[in-house]
């Protein structure tokens, strides 16, 4: 009986995704079909990468509010190296990853070593990255190569090649890497261990600080990748932007059933969460509702998902108590 209940909850998010997709396929204008599907997937590349990255952080019981601004900060600086300093594009892309990794390290250091609450530490990083990007770029708007320019391959590799959405492969690749890291490695086991009970993990010999820092670095790298996909999709990167994007990443994780209390969650759930948000976004537009409606409805979905989490926890607690008695 108990396992059946658990399965029910696991399929709830995917079921919601299917229902949404079917609903908009019937009611939306040109929503159903390969092109529509491609559009849904294309709109979730950068959010997907952000969400995969922050999934690790949230499972350890932390949070990263610097996702959005770090994403655009690393993209902006990399693009500045490419278009203003004349770096070759491949080197600029590496720079983007380095910046993401370094700020991740910074976040991890503050949380693990200086014992700052993650909320405050990453809030600080959010502002630092906003300013940092503007300082380096001298508050200039930067442009990634678009169609018809010299480095056209950038868009082909990371976004779309002809009619083929290459970004989907990257998204699935990120999913595979994330899934493997979380479920098949010692790192993943310790992430869960730290999230369920940090003290217990420490007492059983886990080098908690080191793993916590690693978690934020992994998140930073995923976020930097998100920056690359943002550049491929939207070309123009403005300085001083990106704060506010983190809510998309965090919302996807929460919708996917990862508990904000830490200790439980899955990469698969996050993928479903990202797809639900993208389907809502494209679906609501296909029936003629504007972007702010999408934000409006996503808010309710997030609250619903958290409520579900609470109900689930209470039920688990009750059954645990029963067993003890």
């Amino acid at each position: 009986m108990k396992t059946k209940k658990l399965n029910m909850q696991k399929i709830l998010a995917p079921a919601a995704l299917v229902i949404l997709y079917v609903f908009f396929s019937i009611t939306g204008r040109n929503f159903f079909g390969m092109d529509g599907l491609r559009q849904i997937l294309q709109s979730c590349y950068y959010i997907g990468y952000m969400a995969f990255g922050v999934t690790f952080v949230i499972i350890t019981g932390g949070i990263d509010l610097s996702l959005g601004s770090l994403m655009l900060c690393s993209a902006l600086v990399g693009c500045c190296a490419y278009s203003a300093w004349g770096w070759p594009l491949w080197l600029a892309l590496i720079l983007i990853l380095v910046i993401g990794g370094l700020f991740g390290l910074f976040n991890g250091f503050m949380v693990a070593k200086l014992k700052l609450p993650p909320f405050i530490a990453t809030l600080g990083t959010q502002m630092i990255t906003l300013g940092f990007g503007s300082i380096i770029s001298k508050v200039r708007t930067m442009y990634f190569p678009s169609v018809g320019s010299v480095d056209e391959w950038f868009r082909s590799v990371f976004y779309i090649h002809g009619q083929f959405p290459t970004g989907v492969l990257w998204l699935l690749g990120a999913f595979a890497v994330g899934w493997f890291l979380l479920n098949k490695t010692r790192f993943g086991r310790y992430v869960f261990a730290i999230g369920s009970n940090e003290e217990a993990a420490r007492l059983s010999g886990v080098k908690v600080d080191r793993y916590k820092i690693a978690v934020y670095v992994v998140c930073g790298l995923f976020v930097a990748m998100a920056g690359i996909f943002y550049g491929a999709a939207y070309t123009t990167v403005l300085p001083g932007k990106g704060n506010g994007e983190e809510v998309n990443g965090i919302a996807a994780v929460v919708i996917g059933g990862t508990s904000m209390a830490g200790g439980s969650g899955s990469i698969f759930g996050t993928l479903i969460g990202v797809l639900i948000m993208a389907t809502l976004k494209k679906g609501l537009a296909s029936v003629g509702l504007q972007a702010h409606w999408q934000t409006f409805f996503t808010g309710f979905v997030v609250i619903g998902a958290v409520l579900l989490d609470i109900v689930r926890n209470n039920a688990a607690l009750k059954s645990a108590k029963k067993q003890v008695q």
Binding site: R29, D35, G36, Q39, A233, K282, A285, A291
Partner: peptide, 23 residues
């Protein structure tokens, strides 16, 4: 469609994508 501010380029691109999709 109008984006919330004149710096919301990504939102405008998304909206344009969606609209092109609607043929």
């Amino acid at each position: 469609y109008g984006p919330p501010s004149e710096s919301d380029i990504a939102l405008q691109v998304e909206a344009l994508n969606t609209e092109i999709q609607k043929a």
